[in-house]
Write a protein that binds this DNA or RNA. Structure first.
Lengths: 110, 110
DNA sequence: CTGGATCCCAATTGATACTG
DNA sequence: CAGTATCAATTGGGATCCAG
C-alpha cells in the first residue's frame, strides 16, 4: 500500500497516487461520496475487503485528511466515517474513472 | 495486482480499477502518453520499479488491449511499447488525477 | 454485538543475479 | 538490452481475542 511518508512525489499524478493509488481507496471514496457510513456498512459494500485492510486504509486516509472518523462512546460500539472537504474533492477523479468504465465496459465483456 | 480474469465488475468504477487500479499502471500510461518508449526507457522513467514488475504490468496491459508491444529481431534486443487507442483514452482519467494533484499539492507539503 | 487489534500463514512484490 | 529465475521481504486474508 502506498503511504504518505514516502519520498515526496515529483509530479501531480504521483501526488494523487500517493493518496489514492489503490483500488480500495477509490472504492472507499465512492462509498463515502454517498454519505456517512459505519464501519460495518463499508465492509459490506466493499465486497471482499478484510477488516484488517479496511481499518488500515481508513487510518491512512484519516491521517491524510481525506476521511474523518467519529467514534460514539456506546455499546455496541459505533464508528462513523465520512469524507472531509478534500476527500469530497476527489469526486472528480472518481467520476473520470466512472465515465471511462461506462464508455468501455462492452469491450471488456461487461 | 488486479487482473482481468477475476469476477466481472459490478459498476463502471470497478471496471476501470480492474485495468488501472494500480499505481504503476497509471504511471506507465502517463509515460506512454508522451509517445512510444523502449523497455529500458520506461524502467528508467518509472523510478523504482523492478524489471520483473514492469514486465508483469506490461504483459497484463497488453492482454487487456491497453498497450501494444513491438519486438525487433535484432541484437541487442529492442522492444517498443506504445498505447493502443483504448490506452490513449485513459488520458482523461490520468488528467483528472493530474489536475487534482496540482490543485491540492500544497496541502500535502509539495 | 461492533470495531478493531493480533497472530499465523499464504500470496505478492521486490532486489539481485543470470541468460540469449 | 530485455527478460527470467531465485530468494528475501512485504502484504493480505482469516481466525481469534478483546474492550466497551
Amino acid at each position: 500500500m502506498l503511504q504518505q511518508n514516502e519520498k515526496l512525489p515529483a509530479c501531480p499524478v504521483e501526488m494523487t497516487l500517493m493518496l489514492m493509488g489503490d483500488k480500495w481507496k477509490v472504492l472507499i471514496v465512492r462509498d463515502l461520496l454517498t454519505g456517512t457510513k459505519r464501519f460495518g456498512e463499508l465492509k459490506k459494500s466493499l465486497n471482499g475487503i478484510s477488516q484488517k485492510v479496511l481499518t488500515q486504509h481508513l487510518r491512512i486516509m484519516e491521517e491524510n485528511g481525506l476521511v474523518s472518523r467519529k467514534v460514539y462512546a456506546q455499546i455496541p460500539p459505533k464508528v462513523e466515517y465520512s469524507l472531509t472537504d478534500v476527500g469530497v474533492s476527489l469526486k472528480n477523479v472518481h467520476d473520470a474513472m466512472c465515465q471511462w468504465g461506462e464508455q468501455y465496459k462492452q469491450q471488456f465483456g461487461c
